[in-house]
Design a protein around this nucleic acid. Structure first.
Lengths: 200, 200
DNA sequence: GGCAAGTATTCAACAAAGTGACTATCACGA
DNA sequence: TCGTGATAGTCACTTTGTTGAATACTTGCC
């Protein structure tokens, strides 16, 4: 019963269809929770049955009809109660890190290429996040936003996502430098641990 | 079928009992995969049945007997094959971030205290990781380790864990400063985004 | 005019993960 | 000697998550 709260939190920002939700819970987009469309549709049905969410059918001229979901008062209450409970510790499952852990018995060339792919995927994700940030800020200075805008929650989680991906990029670069140096017998003075650069 | 590879990767560092594994897969310890003891014992049974892992019973004088598991050749092969396949994207599930996302409808005071708890938990975890790092390095300079030691895999994943927790600490501090400033109407010039400090 | 790609949702079956309680043994201290 | 806590493992049950479809409409491109 945890995905449901992620859905409620997303609907708190405004009504949306299952399809819209699916896009924002996509693994390539989500910065704090991932889910497949199937999970979302199933959970939305339950939430509706329990009265935490209501749906209305929207006819569209040029597209299939869609069901647009929004929070009910009960949903808002449930969300509030959820935020008051201690959160479960983060669960991270990272197959790439498992592969790196197994480097000694693993296929080093393949792991290198997985690292390289992850690096470019993270860079793309970072660009995407930065765009969302621009949209949220909408030209205003960050300080003003932080001090007053009611959408501070989404801004903070986005900031977390950005920092996480930046860290991922630094770590992939570090790991690749280390592996390169080992293969070529170069010295490692250029392959320092991922000390974060100074921010912008 | 993903936990199994995490188990194989851990056993690649040396044989261990289910109980030992449980400790290193504990949510408070694991830096890339978390699992409960039940999951581990169940998966170990399967791995044994499939011949990827072998177990021997160890009688202990002062403790209950234990079953110590180690990789078979088939297990090593399976692990190698796993590292050659493209990894699934990271899955992160972070209830605290869901709560922060829902800040506008949430219990702000409670969320603040969850952030504060997370902050101190991350600091403890970081201390723990730093100790593991000292143990791995064993007094040698990092460069030498990076260039030659066969346990480079565990070192890299540990480095990732350390960077991740440092990032978590920075973000929690940032979020707490922002919430404080909002509550007190202070200005936010001291609540900058989590720009990483220069490393040690 | 046909086909891919995007929008929008649903079904069925299965695999994996989480919860909570339960059984033991031993060490240590009050 | 009684409880606590660490060690070591098991059972039963429920909830989640994954896989791989199928359906149906529209736009845009070649």
């Amino acid at each position: 019963m945890a995905l449901r709260h992620a859905i409620l939190a997303t609907l708190a920002k405004g009504e949306s269809s299952g399809y819209d939700l699916a896009k924002s819970f996509d693994v390539w987009v989500a910065n704090f929770w991932a889910a497949t469309p199937q999970q979302l549709y199933r959970e939305l049905e339950k939430l509706e049955a329990e009265g935490l969410v209501q749906a209305r059918l929207v006819h569209q001229r040029r597209r299939p009809d869609k069901r647009v979901h929004s929070l009910t008062d009960a949903g808002r209450t449930a969300l509030h109660e959820f935020t008051a409970r201690p959160p479960k510790p983060v669960a991270i499952r990272d197959e790439l890190l498992v592969q790196v852990e197994a480097l000694a018995l693993g296929d080093v060339a393949q792991i290198r290429s997985h690292l390289a792919e992850k690096l470019s995927a993270s860079r793309r994700k970072l660009e995407h996040y930065e765009q969302s940030r621009e949209q949220l800020l909408d030209g205003r200075p960050e300080e003003q936003y932080l001090a007053r805008d009611p959408r501070i929650g989404p801004y903070l989680t986005l900031a977390r996502g950005i920092a996480f991906e930046q860290e991922t990029v630094r770590w992939c670069e570090f790991a690749l430098r280390v592996l390169d140096a080992r293969e070529n017998g170069h010295d490692l003075r250029t392959a320092r641990p991922p000390e974060p650069p100074e921010g912008p």
